[in-house]
Simulated scan of single mutants.
Amino acid sequence: MNLYGFLQSLGIANPSGTGWLAVIFTFLLAWVVTWLLTPPVRSFALQVGWADQPNERRLNREPLPNAGGLVIYFGVLAALVLATLLRPIVIEGVLAEVLTILLGGSILVLVGFIDDQFGLPPWVRLFTQILTALLLISSGIKIEAPLGTPVDSLLAICLTVLWVVGITNAINLMDGMDGLAGGVSFITAMSLLAVSAQFETRAAATLLLAALGGGALGFLRHNFHPSRIIMGDAGAYFFGYVLAATTILGNLKVTTVFALVPPVLFLLLPVIDTTQVFVLRLMAGKNPLSNPGKDHLHHRLLAWGFSQRHTALTLWTGTIVSNWLAMQLQGMSAIAALVTIASIIALLSFTIWRRMRSL
C-alpha cells in the first residue's frame, strides 16, 4: 500500500493535498518548542518566586514552579504562527476560527496566571470563563439546538456556555497530581484530532488540536512524576477551553440528548471527576470552586495505595478507553481508531521513558 492509500485508510479528508503535512509539522513544532523551553522557564520561575506552595489540593511537599501554562501557551502559539507562515494557503481558510479560540485562550491564560501568583476571587474566574464562551458564540462557534422552538437560540447559548465553562473547570480541577491533566489533555486532543482529520470542514479544529497535543506531550516530559514544574491555572484553563471549543467546531447539533454522547465520552474522566466533586461539596455546604480538598478520583486511588505514577497511568488508561468508544460512535474505521490509540500509547511511552531516564 502506498502512502496515499494508507492515509486514505486512516480517514484523512484530503490525503492528496498538503494539509496533513501542515498538521504533522504543527504537532512536532509545538512538541519540541514546549519540551526545550520548559527548563529555562522553570529556572526563571524559581528565581522570581512563581511557585505553588504545598496545600490541601496539591500533593507536592515543596514549592513547585507553576509557570508551565506559559510554556504550553507559547509552544502552541509558536507552532500555529510558523505553520501559518509556511503554509498560508492551507491555513487561510480557517484562520478566523483559530484566532477566535486563541483570543479566548489568551484571556484565560492571563487570568489564570494572575490567579496562580496572586489569587483571584471565584467570581472573577467564572466571569472570565463566561466571557470567553460568549466570544465563541459571537463568532458562530456554538452548540446548535435546532429543535424548532422559539427558545432555540437561547438554548444554544446556554448549552455552549455550560459546556465551555464546565470543561474548562473540569480540566483545572483535575490538575492536582503530576502528569494527570497533561496526560488526559494529550489523549483527548489526539483522539479529537483523529476524528476531525476526517472532515475538511473541521480544518481549524484539526490544526488547533495538533498544536495542543504537541504542547501537552512536550510538557509531560517535565511534568510526569516526580514533576519539575506544573501548568497552574493558566495551563489548565487553556487546555480545557481549547478542548471544549474544538469539540463544537464541527457544527455539533443537538437534536436529541444522544448527540451529546460522543463529546462527553471524549472528556468523560474530567466530567465524572468534576461532577462527583461538585455534588459532594454542595452536599457538604461548600463552594465547589473555592474550597480545595482531597476528594478527586486521583485522591481516592492514592488512598487505596496507588503510587502517583500508577494513579496517572490508571486514569490515562480510562481516558484512552472512553476516547476509543467515542471514536467508534463518531464512525471512525477500526484501523483508524487502532492506529490512533497505538500512536497515543507509543508517544506517551516514549515520553515516560525519557523522563525516567533523566532521573
Rank of each mutant, 00 (worst) to 15 (best):
D115T: 10
V111R: 07
P88Q: 10
R61Y: 03
I72G: 07
F74E: 03
E56W: 08
E62S: 14
P63L: 05
V109P: 01
L82Q: 02
V90E: 14
F74L: 15
P88V: 06
N66S: 15
P88C: 08
I107T: 12
P122H: 07
R57E: 04
R58I: 05
G75R: 10
A78G: 05
A79D: 04
P63C: 07
I107Y: 04
L95E: 00
Y73W: 15
N66F: 01
I114K: 02
Q117N: 12
E62C: 02
T84W: 03
P88I: 10
T84V: 04
P54M: 05
G112E: 06
V94I: 14
S106K: 10
L120N: 08
L80T: 04
P54S: 09
A96N: 08
R58W: 01
L77I: 10
R61P: 00
L110K: 08
L80I: 13
I91P: 00
P65C: 13
E92N: 14
P63S: 06
Q117E: 11
Y73R: 12
N60C: 05
F113G: 08
D116K: 14
P65L: 13
R58H: 15
A78P: 05
V81D: 03
P121I: 09
L120V: 11
E92K: 15
F118R: 14
V109E: 07
E62N: 06
N60F: 00
V76N: 14
L85A: 13
L59H: 05
L103G: 10
V111T: 12
R57S: 03
L82M: 12
G69S: 11
A78R: 03
R57N: 03
L99R: 12
I91S: 02
L85C: 07
V71G: 01
P63E: 06
E62H: 13
P65A: 15
P121H: 11
V109T: 12
L103R: 14
L59W: 04
R61Q: 15
I91D: 00
E56K: 15
L86P: 00
G112K: 12
S106F: 10
D115Q: 09
V109Q: 08
G105D: 02
R58L: 13
